[in-house]
Design a protein around this nucleic acid. Sequence first.
DNA 1: CACGATTAGATCGTACACGACATATATATC
DNA 2: GATATATATGTCGTGTACGATCTAATCGTG
Lengths: 155, 155
Amino acid sequence: MEEQEISSSSELAASLPDFLCFAVYSTNLAFSKAYKPLFDELGLTYPQYATLVALNEQSDQTVGELGATLFLESSTLTPMLKRLEASGYVTRQRDTRDERQVRISLTPQGKAIFDKAFCGRESVIAATGLDQESFVRLQRDLIKLRDHLLAASKQ
Amino acid sequence: MEEQEISSSSELAASLPDFLCFAVYSTNLAFSKAYKPLFDELGLTYPQYATLVALNEQSDQTVGELGATLFLESSTLTPMLKRLEASGYVTRQRDTRDERQVRISLTPQGKAIFDKAFCGRESVIAATGLDQESFVRLQRDLIKLRDHLLAASKQ
DNA sequence: CACGATTAGATCGTACACGACATATATATC
DNA sequence: GATATATATGTCGTGTACGATCTAATCGTG
């Protein structure tokens, strides 16, 4: 296993493995592919499942709160939430106090998804090919990176 | 900075930060947002730029070779390559020896993108908020994770 | 050479993902 | 209390992303 050389900033022909953004991008594609059989069985997509996880943690969220949790815009969430509603996993209802807001809640059918304890942490760690220390560190560094990028792009 | 607890696999209500897949997913969204102003200036999208990088490294690739490099299917690449052709960054031509294949090459205009040395490695590292050691390790662990996930989903 | 099997791209339908804009409701100021 | 402003969500257009399927070209075997 060779150590990766870091190309200098003056070198023009950087290849894709030199880009951290590409490592993140392609790992995301790989996760989608790896999880697809599981989600197909549930009739869900990967972002839909993430949405249900967020709602399982804290039900009765507004679209905006969900967007802040999932890092998504209303233009992405609204159609997806309508599909989840059509599938019977969530309900959407206008807040009676503030009719601008729409509150999203899990249905019993939506809660039932989690009775299967679908994402057992240990088996997931095993499936990544990383030891537990690397796994935890990777997760921590990614979150740090993400939040730093988001903070930078807000200015 | 608190150390993240690892939830046991029997715990049902795992929250999103507990999922490595969500860390990867949301970091990818954050990268897209952070790079958007730069890509807007070039009239490119993030996947389009990655495609040009792959072609800059090795021009005259077939659609299939590009797909293997970028982890994308022909159903994704074909429309994107047509847009890149329409923008004048690449050419698409059937291979004369094997007419099933289409060979993609950078135009001078496509090559010119890289004269700007757009992605200086050091400034990119600085923008991530990670020290160089964490940056390199993160990249290496992500690639390992990605390749492990892909290998697992091929079976 | 013939003809079934394989391969490479392309097309289509579905689902994100976002910016720009539209709509409806709520708040603020006078 | 009328009107300007702000906020929350929805709609629309563009661009990925993929599986299923189609077409055309090539290969393999007789």
